[in-house]
Design a protein around this nucleic acid. Structure first.
Length: 919
RNA sequence: GGGUGUGUAGCUCAGUUGGUUAGAGUGUUCGGUUCACAUCCGAAAGGUCAUAGGUUCGAGUCCUAUCAUACCCACCA
């Protein structure tokens, strides 16, 4: 299929000087896929590791949030795959119910037709066309971002498998009595012409008015009693008074006590309505009396039920008023409101109008004001399902990261209300319920074409419920419907329950909670053991990215500009789980620089190599390397391997990534490579080979640690490091590609080497620092002379003399000392301590720098003085700490030890500083 | 009304069982044509970790209160 295994044409053996992401990132994905690396086998000797991708909506392009989601998931999957698991990352897309229907309706609107012009069947054809157009785009984007998902198992929520799972679950819950149909007050979007769940309704605070209206007492003859003041109600929606069927007051309200049980006359409609007592009515809001509109207010609906008040529906499904609204029939709500208020005012019923801010419900998808209406809809009974779902999180079967979201989850689950699942849409899973002409009703899990007769009366005059299910109904089954459930397929048996569900915290209720109870109810198991919730990716100002605001950043554009690797790394290292992040170009640019750094580090290691590195991790370096930098980097590398693995296990993906980045840049590149240049130029061929081998070994391991974060670049570099892949098919996959290579294990740590090299680094830093100080204050001519010149230095090494002598070359090169004028001895002779010199005390060593003509004696004295004072303070502090019995007794041993070492080191420094001061 | 975050260097952010003198990137200043890298190297300045109390031998980290800010849930008509 592809020649990717060949070294790309036009490239010589030398790698390019600068890293170019576009060539590299185009090179590997198809090869990986063709090699079958993304497709895990059901290997009984391996443990499964499963992540089901949250299916992106097929409504458009992927956004930054998707890029983050897929980066996190792919990091986990790639890590586990290398760590020996049979890792399945199952991709898919969501049909997106109402959102999916809306995008197609918008398309139709451009042609100036509505879905009704097309009819249900044609409309669904159009919608499928859209889906088939956009699904490949999503696939392309996921590939571009490097997601190592198994395309052979790709799934769509409207595929036959998930469709059957939906019917099976529906029938199960229906037969169990957990799905029921009933008249309830629900949210109605007049624009989308469908029911919405509470979660799909966004409350927005808006300025409005509070109208105070008088309802006169109904006299004995059924007309208004002019001798009585009546009852005064307050409302934010005066037009709903047309549907009032009562007035409610609090039973303890002295103002209205004698009104309870009496009848008032509804203005305009001239309808007698009762005054009832209900404790839900607040005493201190408005007038204490509430007009009751059971047809159009959730609270009023409840009050009406308690007092047997009739329900009057005022609205047509398109949001206009119906014949029950009397003279206002046919008008829209706002128009009717004005009319009602005007008339009430004319007739003297309007007492006052005051400004009042209140919350207005809007449709999540189209922004239209949502109307509460009473309607016959399908519901899922939540009480029985919520219990086990709460228990699963409480007992740790499901762990939520970050942990604080468990509280949010509990609160929602414990106060859950029944879930309205029917939607008056065309696009979605049709409700598998049929009605026969003998008024029987039944649910079926069979394919609709095969449902031909009523099971009760055998009538063939049957019709299916026209509604479809809330899109989140099928989403809730996703962790198992994608694996073949309800059949006990081999995949289901092997990969379920899954491991991690990774998604944004904004869909904790919509989706995560529903997957948990659906999984428990239908499979008897939790669908995943960990929920990892990431934060939102916001724009540079911290605003939510949205198409309408126009501040959406396309991840593909960023990937083209800086590389997918850089984008992934930037998204993951610049945030912590559950917290939002502001997106900025600068951060990606910085990680793109890191990619270049890694590229060049590899170039260097390769240039020093005499042969390609062995392709397996077992080819380890000698257990007793000779040079200090080699011993040091192996030890440090081993710690990094251990820490990276531990952090990944704790889901600290960003921290691990940052640590690796810093380690590569600072310790590996700035210190190790610079120091290793010494032995790489050594006269000894064995020494050269040894260091080269260790550099390759460590770099190989670092590339593998970084591979989950930056898959393309690390593959390219790994292949370069190993002499580019051969076409030898007998090679194990773990030797062919970094993505199948073994996850690194620590080599060995060596405290002594770390201590020694740390001292070397400190001495070098001190010398560089002193030199920069001296040059900074020097006059221009001396500055010139000093620049780039190697300087004289004398080091009193005390107990470290032997080690320092051995590292003289490293010291001289990295601190830019003149080797001919560098002396290292246990004690310095007076000749090595000229008057005009800077003395640096580093641990128990002293460095004397005779910076000819540059040392200002007074300034030098002052510097030493300050340093001595600081050291004294240090001694004082640590001594006090160590004299404190509470500290000695309760602090952990290593902390006490560290303080002792600090004290000892300060006590060693102080006399040396004082001695210098005396001179 | 209930709940959850956030507040750390000029800017953007890390900091997970409390443990040295709080870190990174970026920006600023100074220096650098060392044969991997100027997408680079070296150095410096810059923080009373929002405020006030408390617990503790020890607090950026735990507790209480306050202020600022963001979000979630509920919906008082």
């Amino acid at each position: 299929m592809t020649d990717i295994q060949d070294k790309p044409e036009g490239e010589t053996d030398a790698m390019a000087k600068a890293y170019s992401h576009s060539d590299v990132e185009a090179r590997w994905y198809d090869w990986w896929e063709a090699q079958g690396y993304f497709t895990p086998q059901r290997d009984p000797n391996k443990k499964p590791y499963t992540i089901i991708m949250p299916p992106p909506n097929v409504t458009g392009e992927l956004h930054m949030g998707h890029a983050l989601t897929n980066a996190v998931e792919d990091i986990l999957i790639r890590w586990k795959r290398m760590d020996g698991y049979s890792a399945l990352y199952l991709p898919g897309e969501d049909h997106a119910g109402i959102a999916g229907q809306n995008v197609v309706e918008k398309e139709l609107a451009k042609e100036e037709i509505s879905r009704h012009d097309l009819g249900r069947e044609k409309f669904l054809e159009r919608t499928w066309e859209w889906m088939n157009l956009y699904r490949p785009r999503i696939r392309y984007q996921l590939r571009h971002l490097g997601a190592s998902c198994d395309w052979t198992r790709e799934c769509f929520t409207m595929d036959p498998g998930p469709v059957r799972a939906v019917r099976t679950v529906f029938k199960h819950l229906y037969d169990k009595g957990l799905i029921y149909k009933g008249e309830r007050i629900i949210n109605w979007c007049p624009r989308c012409a469908t029911t919405l769940s509470d979660l799909e309704v966004i409350m927005e605070t808006e300025p409005g008015f509070l109208w105070t209206i008088r309802y006169p007492l109904s006299g004995p003859d059924g007309t208004a009693d002019p001798s009585h003041p009546g009852i005064i109600v307050a409302t934010t929606r005066p037009e709903t008074m047309l549907g009032d069927t009562g007035v409610a007051v609090n039973p303890d309200d002295p103002r209205w006590k004698d009104m309870i049980g009496r009848t008032v006359l509804l203005p305009i409609m001239n309808r007698p309505i009762p005054v009832v007592a209900d404790s839900e009515v607040e005493l201190d809001f408005g007038t204490g009396a509430v007009k009751v509109t059971p047809g159009h207010d959730p609270l009023d609906f409840e009050i009406g039920k308690r007092h047997n008040l009739p329900i009057i529906n005022l609205l047509n499904l398109d949001g206009t008023l119906n014949e029950n609204a009397g003279p206002y029939a046919g008008q829209r709500v706002n128009q009717a409101r004005k009319g009602v208020v005007d008339r009430l005012e004319r007739e003297g019923y309007l007492i006052k109008v005051e400004p009042h801010t209140h919350n207005v419900p809007h449709c999540e998808r189209c922004g239209t004001v949502v109307e509460p209406i009473v309607s016959d809809q399908w519901f899922v009974s939540m009480q029985p399902l919520a219990g086990p779902a709460i228990e699963a999180v409480r007992n740790g079967d499901v762990r939520i990261v970050p942990e604080r979201f468990t509280k949010v989850y509990f609160h929602w689950m414990e106060n859950i209300r029944d879930w309205p699942i029917s939607r008056q849409l065309w696009w979605g899973h049709r409700i598998p319920v049929w009605y026969c002409d003998n008024s029987h009703r039944f649910a079926s899990d069979q394919s609709p074409e095969t449902v031909t007769a009523c099971p009760e009366c055998a009538s063939t005059q049957i019709h299916q419920d026209p509604d479809v299910l809330d899109t989140w109904f099928s989403s809730g089954l996703w962790p198992f419907s994608t694996l073949g459930w309800p059949d006990k397929t081999p995949d289901y048996e092997y990969f379920y329950p899954t491991d991690v569900m990774e998604t944004g915290y904004d869909i904790l209720f919509f989706w995560v909670a529903r997957m948990i109870f659906q999984g428990l109810e239908n499979t008897g198991q939790v669908p995943f053991h960990t929920v990892y919730l990431h934060g939102l990716v916001r724009d540079e100002q911290g605003k939510k990215m949205s198409k309408s605001v126009g501040n959406v950043v396309d991840p593909l554009i960023m990937a083209d500009k800086y590389g997918s690797d850089a984008l992934r790394m930037a998204l993951i290292t610049n945030s912590s789980p559950g917290n939002d992040q502001k997106f900025s170009d600068g951060r990606i640019e910085q990680t793109a620089h890191f990619a270049n750094k890694l590229w060049n580090a590899t170039r260097f290691v390769l240039s020093a190599a005499e042969a390609p590195a062995p392709r397996t991790a077992s080819a380890e370096p000698p257990s007793q390397p000779h040079s200090l930098p080699d011993r040091w980097i192996l030890s440090r590398y081993s710690r990094i391997v251990e820490q990276t693995t531990r952090m990944l296990e704790e889901y600290q993906l960003g921290e691990a990534g940052k640590m690796l980045q810093e380690f590569v840049w600072s310790e590996f590149c700035d210190w190790y490579i610079e120091a290793a240049k010494g032995s790489l130029k050594s006269d000894s061929a064995t020494q050269r080979a040894e260091t080269s081998r260790i550099a390759r070994y460590v770099l190989d391991g670092l590339l593998r640690l970084l591979h989950p974060y930056m898959p393309f670049l690390t593959e390219e570099l790994w292949q370069n490091l190993h002499g580019w892949p051969s076409k030898d098919d007998s090679l194990a996959s773990s030797a062919k590609s970094i993505m199948m290579a073994q996850w690194p294990t620590p080599h060995s740590t060596e405290d002594g080497a770390e201590r020694d090299f740390t001292l070397i680094m400190e001495i070098i830093r001190e010398i560089r620092n002193a030199r920069a100080d001296a040059v900074r204050d020097a006059p221009e001519n001396i500055k010139k002379e000093m620049t780039g010149r190697r300087i004289e230095a004398h080091i009193a090494g005390g107990s470290r003399t032997a080690m320092l002598k051995q590292e003289a070359d490293t010291l001289a090169r990295l601190a830019r000392l003149d080797p001919a004028r560098l002396t290292i001895a246990a004690q310095l002779s007076p000749a090595d301590r000229p008057d005009k010199a800077t003395t640096l005390v580093v641990g128990d060593t002293e460095v004397v720098l005779p910076l000819a003509g540059l040392v200002d004696l007074d300034a030098e004295k002052k510097r030493l003085q300050t340093e001595a004072e600081q050291t004294e303070a240090e001694i004082e502090r640590t001594e006090a700490l160590l004299a404190n019995e509470g500290f000695i007794g309760r602090a952990p041993a290593n902390v006490v030890e560290r303080e002792r070492a600090r004290l000892a080191s300060a006590q060693e420094r102080l006399p040396k500083l004082r001695e210098r001061l005396k001179e």
